[in-house]
Design a protein around this nucleic acid. Structure first.
Lengths: 205, 205
DNA sequence: GACGGTACTGCACCGCCGGTGCGGTTTTTA
DNA sequence: TAAAAACCGCACCGGCGGTGCAGTACCGTC
C-alpha cells in the first residue's frame, strides 16, 4: 500500500468510526481531519466532497461484509454437507458474531444512507442499492439450495425470504439502538433462524 | 384548537413531510418556516431548538401510531374471537395498509432518530425508547394471549418475538428505501405472518 | 374601551461547517 | 534530477442553527 493509499484508508477508518457512532452529518470534516492527523486540504485532495467520502465508505463496507459472510457461510458449510443445516449453523454463527461485538453491532452504514438519501447523490444511492441487491442474490442462492432438498411448509417467495435476512438484521440494529440493548440484534437473528427451521425442517411423524 | 396550537400543528405537519422525505438534518428550519408560512422568530417561539422539534415529532408519532394500531388490531379481533387468527388477520391488514400507502411507507421517524442519536439530546432518545417499549408491551400481550391457547412449535422468548414485529417493519422500511421498491415492506410483514402461523398454528395429523 | 397576555414579526448578529481557490512544500518515483 | 504525487497553510464564501430584543397584531377579560 502506497503512502497515498495509507492516508486514504486512515481517513476512511476514522470517518467510519464517527459515522457509525453518531451519524453521517453529525460527523464534521474538521473532526475527521483532526483524528486522521491530516489537514482539510489533504482531505479534499483524496475526496472531492463529503458525498465522495460516503460513497467510498459504502464501497468499502460492501467488500468487508462480503468477505465476512463468505468466511462465515464457508465455515458453516464445512460443518455440514446439508444446505439447511449449513444455513442454520451460519445464522447461529452470525448471531454469535453480532453478540460478541463489543458494545453491540456498530450499526449498518447502508441503513444510515437509506435514512438520509436526499442528503446523498445518485452515486451513493446506487452503491447502496448494489450492496443490498448483492445480499439478496447471496441469500437467495442459499435458500434455493435448501428448497431443492426440503419441501417448504408455507408458500413464500424465495426472493422475499432472501430480503428477510437483511430486513431482520437491519431492523434488529435499529431496535438495539433505539432501546439501548445491544443484545437485541442477535436475538432477532435467532428468531429468523427459528423461522427457517420451521419453514424447511421436516418434522418426525 | 387555539390559534397557537394550530400554528404549532402546521409546523409539525410540514416538518414531518420533509423529515420523512429527506432526513432530519437535511431539513432546514428556514425551509420549514417558509412552507409553514411563518417567520424564523415564530418557529423559535414554539420550539426552543431543533431538538424540541424532533421531540415533538416523535411524541406525536407515538400517539398517531398507537391509534392506528388500536384501530387495526381492534378490527382484526372483531373479525375473529381466536387470538391467533386475530393476530394473523391483523398482520394481513397491516401489510395491506403499508402496501396501500402512496409511494410506499413514508419511513419511520423512530429509526431516523435511532440512526442519528448523537444529534439528539437525552429527551429525544428517551421519547424514542418509550415508543419502542410501547410496541414491545403491546405485541407481547398479543403473543401471550396466543400462547395461552396454542402450544409453541419452537422455544422462543415472547419478548423477543414482540420485538420481532418491530424489527421486521423497521428493517422492511430500510430495505424498501435502499432498493427503491416500496412493496418490500409489506412483503416482509407477510413473511413475519408466515412465521407466526408456523410457530403457533396446529397442523392436522 | 383600557389592559395584559399570547402569538407572533423584523432585523441584526454570532459561530460552525462544507466547500473553494491557490500558492507553496515535501515526498516519492521514473 | 526533474516531474509527478501527496500534501500544507491560509484566506474566504454561503448556508444554517441559534440568540437577542424591540415592536406589534390579535383577543379575551374586567
Amino acid at each position: 500500500m502506497s503512502r497515498g493509499e495509507e492516508t486514504r484508508a486512515r481517513i476512511l477508518d476514522v470517518a467510519q468510526d464517527s459515522v457509525l457512532a453518531k451519524g453521517f452529518d453529525a460527523t464534521s470534516i474538521e473532526e475527521i481531519v483532526a483524528n486522521a492527523e491530516i489537514t482539510k486540504s489533504g482531505f479534499f485532495y483524496h475526496f472531492r466532497d463529503k458525498n465522495a467520502l460516503a460513497r467510498a465508505l459504502i464501497d468499502r463496507h460492501i467488500e468487508v461484509e462480503k468477505e465476512l459472510f463468505d468466511d462465515l457461510l464457508g465455515r458453516a458449510r464445512e460443518l455440514s454437507d446439508d444446505p439447511l443445516q449449513g444455513a442454520l449453523i451460519g445464522l447461529k454463527l452470525l448471531a454469535e458474531l453480532i453478540e460478541d461485538m463489543p458494545g453491540g453491532h456498530p450499526g449498518c452504514i447502508v441503513a444510515t444512507a437509506a435514512y438520509q438519501d436526499r442528503l446523498f447523490d445518485q452515486d451513493v444511492r446506487d452503491a447502496n442499492r448494489r450492496a443490498v441487491l448483492g445480499w439478496r442474490a447471496r441469500f437467495r442462492r442459499m435458500f434455493e439450495e435448501i428448497a431443492q432438498v426440503y419441501p417448504m411448509r408455507d408458500d413464500v417467495e424465495l426472493e422475499h425470504l432472501a430480503d428477510f435476512v437483511s430486513s431482520v438484521v437491519e431492523g434488529g440494529i435499529v431496535m438495539a439502538r433505539a432501546v439501548g440493548d445491544p443484545l437485541i440484534t442477535s436475538q432477532q437473528v435467532m428468531l429468523l433462524r427459528s423461522y427457517i427451521k420451521l419453514l424447511f425442517e421436516p418434522r418426525i411423524q
